[in-house]
Design a protein around this nucleic acid. Structure first.
Lengths: 344, 344
DNA sequence: TTGAAAGCGGTACCAG
DNA sequence: CTGGTACCGCTTTCAA
């Protein structure tokens, strides 16, 4: 059963005009008499004429919709990004189609192909932890499909990119840990395939070196599924704490890892912050209600979503490719709380 | 610039067949020789033929996409529902288009109209707190557009509905408060326009009455924007605590309200659970990390999203309207934690 | 079993 | 300024 709308043809018949005239009248085309234009427009609005979008799309090869490819919506960071994306799209009259990769390369590929094939006008992408090969994007990109990457980005494709200052955020958090007197700071992070992992690790390195602390590879744990599987986190923390000289603090690289590690430390009875300090990336803003409060690095997720959306729509609507692709970097915000407040 | 795909016409030309034959061969139609079918299908797959979805949609008047209308994605409950919706849609090869009403009636109307006009095959809706008038749905519904409501539902429209056992959840939480010795239990809830408010209030009433406790209207505070505006919550709590005989416990009716009230009580220095107990609906599962842990009523959000999605797709794909509309009710789960553990 | 052609609802070019 | 018409890519009668 279908929604019955009147068509341009109906209007033409009713007003004894040709479809082309009606079409032009509706589009406010210049070469049309004010009289007929008004006539048509009045009739159209009286009869609630709505152009059939599928027909327009078929003709124009554009759908006024953008596809979003991300890992998992319930992740706080992503849900806020998504909200930002939607808010811009709403104002620009684009529809937002979402897909989740669940950190699976296979699924990401399928989603991307499906979106492209179902003809979105552009793609907003945060790569899955499993994605090394990016052929599914390059092919589309070469064919001219606008793509903007956010958060987990790549330099294998030349396009706009929206990220937080990941290096800076990790640096700040590490400095805070050092300042609080921690000397053996471990790093629990995601797959080294994704950009954010490398950038955050760099910030961690920089801060350690600046503080004259040694970087110990044994103190860095990579969770290949970004913490999607609980065992990853358990294993990482277990191994760290079993080290001959165990860490006295943890720097976690993502929402899920931070929460996971924090919960695990508490569950295992570690005293935070005395015995172990913990800080990490997280957009969960009730972290202050934890016991002790959790020191977090916050990313302006909503703003990042807006920016990504704006850049993509810009790309879609500009006739020709931009001279230069932008890389928008958003400052992070360190909120120091009890979990790093060791009294020396 | 557009993605170049070969069309059915190209195949026809290459194989010296007619487009109709090719079309039928691709659809595995019965009246076609096995030979030509194989020929066509091989050529198609070799040349990566992808049917143009816009053309198919224009013809069939179906888009294989569903629209989701909800308040706000970053809300934990909704983000989990959304994830459930997406997971089912993915398996059934439907695309999910999301829109946020931000609790605004205006915006809900716009989103619904836009989605319908942009021809989604069906709608998944959780009403905004402001929505009393539902004409924007009834019109579409009468025209045959499949709609399934979830969470904030209505009985003004005859259709499938997916909800949590809201009465039961509120009842359980209130009973828990009573069991812990609280005697003057206030209720902070959302707008009375939405179904969940009434149902949850009923559970609260039932439990109070069963316990022989008086229901005091002064102890019920309605936040008309569901806690979207922080002042609402502040005002509600302030007024409650300023009552001649202030409450000794709070039952909160939604994610945002629960977190908001809890944070506020802590900020204002109330001792929880001794001075004030608090429990409420929330899908935030790190509530155990709070100090004290927060007693929550959890809804199986992901499962609810899946159910809603399945019902909608069923509606879309069945030729005729079902004999009977379903109302799927999901059990809630009470997780009692420190915030209601008063030692008597 | 196959092909021709109409049509889904618009858009845009070309005449007039 | 207006009308006729081809076309976007696919589906589906209707004939052959």
């Amino acid at each position: 059963m279908k929604l019955e709308n009147i068509t341009i043809k109906d209007i033409a018949r009713a007003l004894d005009l040709s479809v082309s005239t009606v079409s032009r009248a509706l589009k406010d085309s210049y070469k049309i008499s004010g009289e007929t234009r008004l006539l048509v427009q009045r009739y159209a609005s009286e009869h609630q004429y709505r152009p059939n979008v599928m027909a327009q799309s078929l003709k124009s090869q554009r759908s006024r919709s953008i596809g979003v490819v991300l890992c998992n919506v319930p992740n706080v960071f992503f849900s806020e990004v998504l909200s930002g994306i939607e808010s811009v799209a709403y104002n620009s009259d684009y529809l937002v189609i979402i897909t989740q990769s669940q950190e699976s390369y296979q699924r990401e590929v399928k989603n991307v192909q499906n979106l492209a094939w179902r003809s979105v006008d552009g793609l907003l992408v945060s790569l899955s932890t499993e994605s090394e090969n990016l052929d599914h994007f390059t092919r589309l990109h070469e064919q001219g499909l606008p793509i903007v990457f956010f958060d987990r980005v790549t330099d294998l494709l030349q396009t706009h990119v929206v990220v937080a200052d990941n290096r800076g955020g990790a640096y700040d958090a590490t400095v805070e840990l050092v300042r609080s007197g921690y000397r053996r700071i471990a790093h629990v992070t995601s797959s080294p395939h994704v950009s954010i992992t490398l950038e955050r690790r760099q910030g961690y390195f920089d801060a350690l070196q600046e503080a004259g602390l040694a970087v110990d590879e044994a103190c860095i744990k990579y969770c290949m599924h970004g913490g999607m599987v609980a065992e990853e986190i358990e294993q990482a923390v277990t191994e760290l704490m079993a080290l001959p000289s165990p860490p006295d603090a943890l720097l976690c690289a993502s929402d899920r890892l931070t929460m996971g590690c924090y919960a695990l430390l508490r569950r295992r009875g570690y005293r935070i912050p005395e015995q172990v300090g913990i800080a990490g990336f997280s957009n969960f803003n009730a972290a202050e209600l934890f016991c002790p409060g959790l020191t977090t690095v916050r990313q302006p997720a909503f703003e990042m979503g807006k920016a990504a959306s704006e850049l993509l729509i810009g790309l879609i609507e500009s006739k020709r490719p931009p001279r230069e692709y932008e890389q928008r970097v958003f400052a992070t915000e360190l909120v120091a709380r009890g979990s790093t407040a060791r009294v020396r």
